[in-house]
Amino acid sequence: MAYKNVLKYSDVTPRADFMNRRQLMGGAAGLAAGLALGPALGASKYSVDLKPNPLEDITAYNNFYEFGTGKTDPADNAHMLTTDPWSVEIDGMVDRPGSYGLEDILKNVTLEERIYRFRCVETWSMVVPWVGFELKQLLERAGVQGSAKYVAFQTLLRPEEMPGQRTRSLEWPYREGLRLDEAMHPLTLMATGIYDQPMPKQNGAPLRLVVPWKYGYKSIKSIVRVTLTDKEPQTTWNMLQPREYGFYSNVNPEVSHPRWSQAYEKPIGGGLFAKRQETLMFNGYADDVASLYDGMDLVVNH
């Protein structure tokens, strides 16, 4: 019989306690290996020098419409999701198409911690210490063919475990896409954990994309399919409201969402009197990624 998890989030040991225990165990850092890493690793040059939100914030306030449209629905409902076994179908313009098991994927990549800003299109933001590997590593393993120009992604479609998929809030399965140069960029991460935990289910377990210079909905969760293609892929929010959600969806304080301004953001975790702060071009990653869009009209290609 398959292992059934009966533990609830309330059963999780508070991070502070758990860190103390880790200190007691001294060099037993190897225990945390697997999906997530301990802070033993050196800081990545791609990490921002900001204090990450506590795990409690990151796991309590989510948009993951597969589990409901409310911010706490994912935390309430995601426990229903089975993430083991898990495999990713890689197809389209690749030399080695096929179904790649998660363990097999992880054996052939280098995991590292990346502390990234995360900016939601709804104008809230967090700082998240992801653990993951560069998407590039997986794409190179599958062998991207010269004709490929885009990468399309799909989330798991399993309405019996994802109650939101039994409603028609969005067209399922959730789809996202990147241009190939965006997908191959070293900032583009396939994340498998947060802090030293395997990816919490409400955050897109076991494998999700993180593209820190784009609005959060581009960072598709619980990925089961990656397709290399020469056509701009369909993306879920763009299919719903093309005027509001463009294919690129780069964070841009100068391009308003038709229904609200994107000039400012509210960092989560500041309580009732948290100050708004200015949103940065490309979410603060302009030095790394602005050149990808040289000569492009960022209003038209929003």
Partner: peptide, 15 residues
């Protein structure tokens, strides 16, 4: 409730 955390990590929107 918003001030004491009963409305979650983004109390302003909730309130």
């Amino acid at each position: 409730q918003a001030a004491t955390g009963a409305m979650g990590v983004e109390p302003v929107k909730a309130l």
